[in-house]
Structures are given as structure tokens and as C-alpha cells.
Simulated assay, not measured.
Amino acid sequence: MTQSLNRRGLLIGGAVVGAGALAAACTGNDPEESTPSQQSVAAGGDNDKAGKQVTIGFSAPAADHGWIAAIAKNAAAQAKQYSDVTFRAVEPTNDINQQIAAVDSLISAKVGALVLLPNDGEQLNQVARKAMDAGIPVVNLDRVFPDKLSYRTWVGGDNYGLGVAAGDYIGTKLKSKGVSNPVIVEIQGIATLPLTQDRSKGFADALKTYGFSVTAKQDAKFTVETGNQVASNLLQAHKKIDALWNHDDDQGVGVLAAIKQANRKEFFMVGGAGSANAMREIKAGGLLEATVTYSPTMASSAIKLARLIAQGKGMTDLVERQVPQSITLASETVTKENVDQYMPLGFES
């Protein structure tokens, strides 16, 4: 278990350094070595031909989490594809007031568009609205602002669908095994976030169609350490488990370590987000049988959309002349049968 946690710590350290480098200055368009599992950019098209020069501001939480680190890397990598884009990333932070101040600095700099992944959508709603009122279109990434006037376009994953996919996988397998009254354990991310609540609702709704329900659930804050602690507590509380759903593959590193330490093998596990670490576990054929995607490539898409909006363009594949108000990514279930197809999109935990 210690080895897994230390490896994670080293990865986090590298991610933080990478994110800090992004924030140090405006990014030009110099080529940069990329890691396939960390950076994904979209292929070029008619809309990718050089147009009006725009500056895109970017703000996200601190990269103390593999998924967040990949968000920052994907955003920077996509911006580098365009000779007409200057990418201006502010220092990532988990402090609400510091993120508000950082976004304020981008507003004062009069950037052409702003891609913003807030630590908390409700708490950053006002500063996002301030940007919109100043004529700066905001592309709201992932954690949504409650006020639709605070963003031009939202792009993110299907959290409800993620829960449904996990519930369908577990429900189908338990039904096929003839299990009745199963013990189903759920480990959430941050329980207070709407995205977590959507995931749990989707999971519960899907299980209900099979006549099942969640036996116990607890949140693990999206961290390896808390994931390890919460899993250990749930394993001690339930001497027999039939299935476990863990919302987040990053915290899943700690969850898996706890399971291995307890030497529990009577159940199967489903993850969430689609990390490379989880996909390797799935391919190896262990307790973790599946994960449901929530890809950080959404940051690449957010940069593309911000550029189009700032340049007054629409999406060439659509009839409409303007970029849509919201774009929801599909939640795809990754299993041993299709894991090789999804591995290039995995991010390192």
C-alpha cells in the first residue's frame, strides 16, 4: 500500500510543477513534447485555419489530482495548435478567494475569452458573471455555474450518465449471477458538489431498474489518502460485499490499495473517469473490472470553443451559426474487451 501511495505522490509533484510552468507566462506556439495519456488535441478542420488573433484566459484548481493535471495539460496543448491564439493561464489554486482574484486579473487584462473550471461553481458564479458583463465570453468547464448568465457555453461530462453506466454494469452482472439482496458499496468524490450528487442519483436510478439499491456510501474527497481511509472503513464495516462503485479513479488508487491490504476478493469494482492506471488494472484482470469515462479532453474542446466564440464563428459540422450553449460528453464504459481502444485517452493518476 505504501508503495502505491508514494508513487502517486511523485506523480502529483510532477503535475504541480507542470501546471506551475503553464501559469508562469503567456504561452506561445512553440512545439512541446507531449505524453499521449496526458495531452489530447483535436485534429484540424476548416475552422482551425488562422483567423483573428485572440487571447484565451484559463483558470483551474491546483493540479493535486491526476484528472485536474490532465485538464491543464490538454488546455495548453490545444491552444498551441493555433497560431492565432495566445494562451494566458493564471496560477492554479484550491483557494476560492485566490481563484476569484486570478480571474479578476484576466478580466482586467481584457482577454478575448475565458475558460474557467471553478473550484466551486456557486462560489465563483459572481466573478464569472462579472466577466460576461464585461463582454468576455466564459466557457464554463465541468463544474457548472448556477446562473446561466455567468457563462456563454458549458462543456463537461455527463455525471448522471456516468452513474447510470456504472449502475447498469453492476446491475447486469449481479442479475446474471443470480445474486439477490446484494451488498453494494459506493465511494463518492466530494459529496457537496452537484456533479457528485448527479453521479449518485444516476447510479441509484439505474440500480433501481434491477431491483437493487446502495447499501452504504461515503465520500472520499477525490484524494488517494481519503480514498484509502474510506475504503478501509467500509471494508471493516461490511464483511461481505458484492460490488463496489468508486466515483473517481484518482482516489481509486487508495481504494485499491486498501482492498489489496485487506486481502478482499469476494466482490468486483467499477471506477469512474477513465485514468490510465485504472485501465491498466482492468487489462490485468483483477477486482477492477470497468471504469466509466469522464475525459479531461473536455479541456481541449473548451479551448476550441472559446476560440470560435471569440472569433465569432460557429461549428462547421452544425447548421447553426453560433456555438451551442452547452455540450455534454458521453459516458463510455471501459472493460477488458475494449480497454485498448480507450488507453490513449487515459490520464495518469
Rank of each mutant, 00 (worst) to 15 (best):
K304D: 14
R8P: 03
H247Y: 13
T196R: 11
I136N: 10
S83F: 03
D46Y: 15
N246P: 00
Q39C: 07
D219V: 12
K336F: 07
A79H: 04
R152W: 04
S176G: 05
G314S: 02
A21G: 12
R152A: 03
A25I: 00
E266I: 03
T223K: 14
A273D: 14
N119K: 05
G163Q: 01
G161E: 08
L287Y: 09
T226Q: 15
S83E: 02
S4H: 11
K221T: 10
T297P: 10
D340S: 14
F87Q: 05
A258L: 10
Q341V: 12
A89E: 04
V17E: 12
D248P: 14
G44N: 11
A15T: 02
M1Q: 13
C26K: 09
S105M: 06
V319P: 03
L207W: 02
I259K: 01
A102E: 02
L117Q: 05
V255G: 06
R264I: 05
K175E: 10
V230G: 08
A299L: 07
A262T: 11
G252C: 04
L5W: 07
K260V: 00
D250A: 06
S349Y: 12
H238A: 07
S108R: 08
A276R: 09
E91Q: 14
Y342R: 00
G9C: 02
A79T: 00
D317C: 03
D248C: 06
A243N: 04
A15Y: 15
K201M: 05
G18W: 10
I327V: 14
F267C: 03
V253D: 05
V139P: 05
L162N: 10
S4F: 08
L11G: 03
E225W: 04
M132N: 02
E186L: 13
N119S: 06
L22W: 09
A25W: 08
C26G: 13
A237T: 00
D104S: 06
Y169H: 15
E225K: 08
F222E: 11
A113Q: 12
N181V: 06
G167P: 09
L195R: 11
A23S: 13
F267N: 02
A109R: 13
T209A: 09
E320T: 12
Y169D: 13
N159Y: 11
D250S: 12
